[in-house]
Design a protein around this nucleic acid. Structure first.
Lengths: 188, 188
DNA sequence: TTTCCATGTTAAATATCCTCAACACTTTCC
DNA sequence: GGAAAGTGTTGAGGATATTTAACATGGAAA
């Protein structure tokens, strides 16, 4: 459980890194943002939780969008190849999600190797989140529901839609169902 | 110039739409988020600027990430399902690319069902373009070159990298190689 | 009808953010 | 050296977010 304090420190670290990356002093940024340098100091040192409005004004001064800010992370060496065993397991129950890349912080693309046991799925509650997602069925039969549309897909069939539409997945038939899917931006 | 009030109303509208999409009452969401329903009411009606910490906790209750929340926008109607025959053929030579969705104008995600005849590939010239791409090998063996790294991938193995790095693909061995890949943004 | 439970809104009190002003420190320039 | 202007940090107080506890409305069941 991530508490308010952790969030503040996370925000602070991101802001400090970004500000330095743009070669701005706290005062310079504060002036562009229309707030005081003290606020920026407090935010960066993780000593307070800025309001969304205040953060927005600061980010406008850099400039960077809210969405980009929250998917930002200081650079590191990138891992490119992943053998099958390295795909991290993030599913549970009858559904198994194997993700390419362990930490997608700062990434724009999430690719999953999904395996549904017969009759299992994402549950009754529909998912809905920002972004776009799609996939291709490799084997088995997958029932996909998007908004009020529903369709049964077999091997070679595919789907692609805006993730803000409520959606759910369920494997039907007696064989397990394998799907390769992609999301942008990552949602887990 | 966007002022604090506009931001508050924007946040409120997004949150209300998302909450209803997930069929949660203000109180139900408040309980999951660990805050009071009054706060959610005030946020949704645009009467205040929540702190980032408070917003984060609310979004955790939905759940949706910060980045996704700020890139969220209302839905539109479009084609979602594609049977195998509808995947448009855009490959040539020994390589066949079957794309999900015919016209990707305005889309952020491109998903391909790729099939390489033994020994074929994307050619000697390395590709390099904006975006990010990844994929999972379904069958056969694929040699992937990214920058000065090269690796031979088999079924279940995967790759994920920034597309600005020069890269190329080639099927090796005697069997054909099948891969499901994704790009954001689309590059064809 | 009456009661009950759920919804969203709001006033007053408390907790927190944000600013103003000052502080200590370093770098730059005479 | 000393002044001047830069850096980030902190205390006190006014401004604002958040809680507590109530209010008003609406639908469902008796």
């Amino acid at each position: 459980m991530e508490n308010t304090h952790d969030i503040a420190r996370d925000i602070g670290a991101r802001l400090r890194a970004l500000r330095r990356m743009h070669k701005l002093s706290q005062r310079a940024l504060a002036k562009k943002a229309g707030i005081t340098n003290a606020t920026i100091s407090l935010i960066e040192s993780g000593k307070m939780n800025p309001s969304v409005g205040a953060l927005k004004r600061v980010l406008d001064g850099i400039p960077i969008g809210m969405s980009a800010f929250f998917s930002f992370e200081p650079e590191r060496e990138e891992k490119v190849f992943f053998v099958a065993e390295e795909l991290v397991q993030i599913g549970r129950g009858g559904v198994s999600f194997r993700q390419v890349g362990g930490n997608l912080f700062g990434k724009k693309l999430q690719i999953l190797h999904e395996c549904y046991a017969p009759g299992t799925g994402t549950g009754k509650v529909k998912l809905a989140h920002a972004g776009e997602e799609g996939g291709i069925v490799i084997s088995g039969r997958l029932e996909v529901t998007v908004g009020d549309q529903r369709k049964l897909l077999g091997p070679g069939d595919a789907y692609l839609f805006d993730s803000t539409r409520p959606h759910s997945f369920r494997a039907v038939g007696e064989r397990e169902c394998v799907v390769v899917s992609a999301c942008t931006p990552p949602t887990f």
